[in-house]
Write a protein that binds this DNA or RNA. Sequence first.
DNA 1: GAAAGAGGTCACAAGGTCAC
DNA 2: GTGACCTTGTGACCTCTTTC
Lengths: 600, 600
Amino acid sequence: MPEDAGTAKPGGVIAYISSGSASSPESCMSTSSSSSSSYLSTSPTPPRPSLPSRAVGMVVDICPPFKNGQRGHGVEKAGRSSTSAKSSITKINGMVLLCKVCGDVASGFHYGVHACEGCKGFFRRSIQQNIQYKKCLKMENCTIMRINRNRCQQCRFKKCLAVGMSRDAVRFGRIPKREKQRMLLEMQNAMNNMMSNNSQLHSMLHGHQSPSLPMEAMTSDSSSSSSSSSCSASDSPSSSSPSSPQCPQDSESVVSMDTNSSSASSCGSDSGEDESVVTVNRRHQNAFAYKQERSLRQDQASPSPVALETGCESRMEEQQESWNSWNNSAAGRGFQHCSYSNSQHVTNSVYREESEVYQQQPQQQLNSTPSCEPSEDSQFNTQTASSGYNGPTHCVNNRAHLVCPMNTSPYVDPTKPSQEIWEEFSMSFTPAVREVVDFAKRIPGFRDLSEHDQVSLLKAGTFEVLMVRFASLFNMVERTVTFLSGKRYNLNTLRSLGAGELLNSMCEFSEKLAGLRLDSDEMSLFTAVVLVSADRSGIQDLNSVEALQDKLIRGLRNLVMQNHGEESATTFTKLLLKLPELRSLNNMHSEELLSFKVHP
Amino acid sequence: MPEDAGTAKPGGVIAYISSGSASSPESCMSTSSSSSSSYLSTSPTPPRPSLPSRAVGMVVDICPPFKNGQRGHGVEKAGRSSTSAKSSITKINGMVLLCKVCGDVASGFHYGVHACEGCKGFFRRSIQQNIQYKKCLKMENCTIMRINRNRCQQCRFKKCLAVGMSRDAVRFGRIPKREKQRMLLEMQNAMNNMMSNNSQLHSMLHGHQSPSLPMEAMTSDSSSSSSSSSCSASDSPSSSSPSSPQCPQDSESVVSMDTNSSSASSCGSDSGEDESVVTVNRRHQNAFAYKQERSLRQDQASPSPVALETGCESRMEEQQESWNSWNNSAAGRGFQHCSYSNSQHVTNSVYREESEVYQQQPQQQLNSTPSCEPSEDSQFNTQTASSGYNGPTHCVNNRAHLVCPMNTSPYVDPTKPSQEIWEEFSMSFTPAVREVVDFAKRIPGFRDLSEHDQVSLLKAGTFEVLMVRFASLFNMVERTVTFLSGKRYNLNTLRSLGAGELLNSMCEFSEKLAGLRLDSDEMSLFTAVVLVSADRSGIQDLNSVEALQDKLIRGLRNLVMQNHGEESATTFTKLLLKLPELRSLNNMHSEELLSFKVHP
DNA sequence: GAAAGAGGTCACAAGGTCAC
DNA sequence: GTGACCTTGTGACCTCTTTC
Ligand SMILES: [Zn+2]
Ligand SMILES: [Zn+2]
Ligand SMILES: [Zn+2]
Ligand SMILES: [Zn+2]
């Protein structure tokens, strides 16, 4: 049903504002729009400038019981006069109202109907000047949607009338309270129905950003009649052409894709100077809290700020430190996801597999030597929090950032508050971090470094160690990535969820590393080398670190020389060359993490 | 991508319009460049009729925020109504937008993309009549530029689609404020990218000179409008207010070499945005705040290119290309400039010196051999900072960022507009970058890589190469650093000027590198290895790069084995271990550079 | 007074035109 | 065909009016 967007009947629709979406109010719009458009035609995403970003999380349709002529809804407008002056959007209790004519975000109740500024203006002009529009070039039944509303004036006007716009349907003045109340109830009802009826859809909706889309799909209104067909043929001369390029996969296009999506939105709201990551997190939460216009549920007092606080307490310090280092990375560039909306989405169930994979493969690697081996299963099977979320959504959501194998799943429930997501992620990877710390402790000589330097190395090197240690999660033969939950996901799926260049680089790296065919001892030693070769800024006793590095490297060389026969020299060299690659991955990773934090 | 901004994501190019007289002489360094037109394009640059004479010089970025609450428009069209009015040119805040398809001056946002009248018309015709163009005579990958856009319709149309033109992406009506805001930010971002040293690599590869000088662009703007308006208040606590010069003294401010970002202040212009400032605490000391903005999907895919119409008229066809690629970088962040006005300070003019020094000395070095030893002569009179600079103070000036040996002097005249400072810096290091490019071209096999990959490697590796090549500028025995001007500065002096951890790390690195006692051949080969070992994200043909790396490494190993007797193995290993260190330095450097850009 | 919509305004873009 | 101009809308904002 959603698929054939064609049928749209934007009826009273409601879009829910999910606070979760982007911390920054504005930013979000981007993603959503793309996704939305796409489902329709493959066509490129039409920009949705007008939609205030914070809008939308999901859209719900409401079908207002009364037909237009009626008045009344309780509503609030995003004050434009207000400081921030978001554009004026009409919402009710956090739900965004959509234009009944075209599905764009409504700016109010105009001429008896919730309509967008465009349709309002169009209608005004139409009636003021009594314009006779040129005849429709098609069958006089064009579907009117935001992206194509200007293509056929006759049909647009017709639609305006059809949905009830009329000069005498105007309602002036403030909305009576009763009216408002009633409306609210109605909406809530509608929402509930939807949710219960179609949970799947619901989750998909949550994944979407664009309001209009979904709703159209679901709109059950019988009313409009016209609809459907439209999109297709007529409009789309475009579809044929423009559309296609959209989902290009060639490198070039990929680039652009990223870009597109990444439009920057500014986020700096405040001045904070040097605050630690912790603070950052806190801020985000606040931001969210602020935004959560709707969800009642998440209001709980401020949750614990830092992700790390979640599970384990022991050794937190160090871990915390390492987090900091990750977080500190350079600039975060917003990275993006392209939404290939249309593409088929696969439910991941298909890829669902046993988790043994994860547990075993990797295990061996660090094991042999000093390794840590987490207590098998339990540790890694952290939560299932997400389990409930089946959302097969193809729709890329903002949080795609967390498409990380250290997470339990690449899918994110958009309805979840950001901090919760982070916490889960944190819980998921924390055991691994601890593993690294334990591993480090077992590296002969590591404990002899000053505590400060141990911490510094861990901070700088944890990611790199994890990368090596979990390289086997990236299976380039099957083109899948195994997450900590044990599930495997296809690369393409992950990409469609927002994974970008970092994923590619990691795969690249893993493949090459695997190609060196190290045995477990070598791998352990190499991992140790990786750790002590981590970025040294901040190290106090450089010589000691260097000495340790030297020692380990010699050991590694001997080991390699011993095991790899003729290729030994080459293999050793190649191993060393993995170090700068790891450093690069580390940087990319840091940026993305940071990016997530900035824009959860 | 990780490293510097330069990565690829289509962004927009920006050019600054310095209307009127080609006043800024300096900026025109491009002029000279133009003369050295590319060997590529044989034909002289065609005049640019359509472009208002003041056309572009280089592209760069942009600027300062205009005030918003006001009516000020971010985007203005050159009045067409006015008599002379050349065609309508869309500019934002003084920056000309360039056509995303061909690079000509854009006349507006057409079909979802900033495009020129030509491309707009072409696209319209194409979709209206659903024209099937004749097949491309070449490889269907013609580069579309203003001068040749009519040569291959198929490719032109393809490019149109590729950049996102589509009927579905049409945007009518006035540009939403937030949209404008966003564009501005993007431009800023683009500018920042440009600023990054990698910039003009592409053209250099072609033998061109870099078009521009970075930032003049922002100049006027900043001055004109109150610009950074917002910086103010909330955001940046202290430093921001231009009027009140401050001299931050906190230890924090003293951080990095290039940057001293500490007092970063974000200038979020308006509250409405969903901006959030993230403050990151990096490596203990350096704290900088930056705002990252990312919108998931914005409408127009990437920011549109803009051209600065400076006075100089060099044309940028090809350069445009490179710009595009640079700008493509991740769009995610939006930076703002805050004008810091610092107080006291001295014009560095005093320190200005001939550049011959740089030009010659260094020159030889990479040519045959790598090392450079600036020292020696009289040229290098170690001059102490104190000389003309009255405030050797510990008072770190905000711009301490540019305390970089690639500059001519660590002192910065605070009264100088930020862009001018950058320009000078740019002029200072550009030759060195060119040197790197030339060096790269001479690496056997490098030219066999695809152009894209050559550029990618250069983008990622230029800093690292420079670091190796100029390592000798760091004299750890005497504890001095020789700047490109030939002058030497004491480490402590530099620290007092704001250099921080990066400087330490660089010294560290240089010392260790020197300890390996490589001869010039080894150094050259090592430098080549460094380049081909640069971060590979974005590389298209990984295998080729790897093969080249392999070849060079073997060569290096042989050479080392031959020269270093017993220590050879160790030396070689140590050399390889320098690679990750370089990567780290590169990251730190990028961050600081970025930081400078963010908070000049 | 505050909220909320009708109408007005005018920055901007789609399309059409017609010398090249 | 091209693309500089022109004409005709469009729609983001704003002001003015009505209603609570
Ligand atoms: Zn509408
Ligand atoms: Zn129609
Ligand atoms: Zn063009
Ligand atoms: Zn062609």
